[in-house]
Simulated scan of single mutants.
Amino acid sequence: MTTTFLTPQQLADRTAAAVEAAVAAGRELGLTVTDPTVLHDVFSVVVHLAPSPVVARIPTVLPRPDDLAALARRQQDELDVTRWLGDRGVPVIAPSPLVPREPVQRGGFSMTLWPFVEEDRDKEPDYVANAESVADLHAALRAYPGRLEFLSAAEPGFIAESLARLDRHPGLIAAAELDRARREWQVLEPLVRSRRAFEDRFPGVELQPIHGDCPPANIFSGVDGDLYADFELVTLGPVEWDLAALGPEHEAAYDRGARRNGTRPLDEEVLGFVNALGMLRAIATLTLAPQLPDLMEYLKPAVDKWQTMPFAGGISS
């Protein structure tokens, strides 16, 4: 089966449609929007609804683009968590106070609205320092009272569906690699599908609200300081998930932060589990490449690295 990728024109049309939907939604909410400016366009289109100090984030590359209800539920979790953190003085990009704190659906998209924060473009990201800071974020999140799903950030349904149909796209992954991925999934799937199975396999490893999407890479450098951002995959899970695939230097930095604030250090066995699980999620993401052709360039190094790693992160079935 030939894999068909979106053309540059189709990608541009999708971006334009997302911007149009965001502008219309902003105006309906009473915002003045005369000069919309796209700030970012990869998995989501992020557009400043200028001159209003509001930014719309519109997810456009999704496993199930038509399931706006499921997307909106996750977006509401993000809005609730970030508002809760902001109310407690945690440095976070919280929802815009100028509009209702809820997802907005328009033109076949579901979007969230945030304050415009000026970026410090001269500051180079320090991912090691950021990893240490994540321990502080975890300490703050421990008290979050809202209900979150167990390891929803791993998207087990997406992994299972993707591994089941990747053999129809031989240009995306070799047969031997797909076979290994499927065998690893047989080992790992029960531990991500069931909180009880996870807790039985890793006794004493506490679960808590976590960021869900590599927070060391999602700390925004604002002109007035760093802010935790992009909680789109916020979930309940082990803190190790937020350090998956980052390596020993970042893990050591996190442990320094944990010692400083009195929380637990990372567990080696759980790291093995989340590293392997994260790699399977990356392989599943290959199925999104037709929607975002540049993904192949970014995912190939991850697939190459995965092949050097212990099978299923050293977790036995």
Rank of each mutant, 00 (worst) to 15 (best):
T2D: 14
T3F: 10
T3D: 07
T4R: 14
R14H: 06
R14E: 09
T15Y: 02
A16Q: 06
A18P: 02
A22G: 04
A22H: 01
V23M: 01
A24F: 06
A25W: 03
A25V: 03
G26C: 00
E28H: 14
G30A: 08
T32P: 01
D35I: 05
D35A: 12
V38T: 08
V38Q: 01
F43P: 02
H48Y: 02
V54Y: 00
A56L: 00
R57K: 11
I58T: 09
I58E: 03
T60K: 07
D66S: 12
A72W: 01
Q75I: 08
T82Y: 01
R83H: 13
D87E: 14
D87H: 08
R88C: 05
P91Y: 02
V92G: 04
A94Y: 06
P95V: 07
S96K: 00
V99T: 08
R101T: 14
R101Q: 13
V104P: 13
Q105N: 11
R106H: 14
F109V: 10
S110W: 13
T112N: 10
W114K: 11
F116T: 01
K123A: 15
D126S: 07
Y127A: 06
V128N: 14
A129E: 13
N130S: 13
E132I: 06
A135Q: 09
L137W: 09
A139K: 13
R142F: 08
R142E: 10
P145I: 01
G146K: 00
R147I: 05
E149I: 02
F150K: 09
S152A: 12
A154T: 08
I159Q: 04
E161M: 05
R165Y: 04
L166N: 02
P170E: 07
L178V: 00
L178C: 01
D179Q: 14
R180Q: 03
R182A: 14
R182M: 11
V187D: 07
L191W: 03
S194P: 04
S194R: 07
R195S: 05
A197V: 08
A197H: 02
F198Y: 14
E199P: 04
F202V: 04
F202P: 07
Q208V: 03
Q208D: 03
P209S: 05
P209F: 07
H211M: 06
P215R: 02
P215Q: 03
A217W: 13
A217N: 11
N218A: 12
S221A: 15
V223P: 11
V234S: 01
T235G: 04
E240Y: 10
A245N: 14
L246I: 08
L246Q: 14
P248T: 09
R256Y: 11
R256H: 13
R256N: 10
R259D: 15
N261M: 04
R264V: 13
L266T: 13
L266D: 14
E268P: 12
E268W: 04
V270M: 10
V270F: 04
G272A: 09
G278L: 07
G278N: 12
Q291N: 13
L292H: 15
D294I: 11
M296G: 10
M296F: 09
K300V: 10
K300Y: 05
A302N: 11
A302M: 12
D304Y: 09
W306I: 05
G313H: 08
G314D: 11
S317V: 10
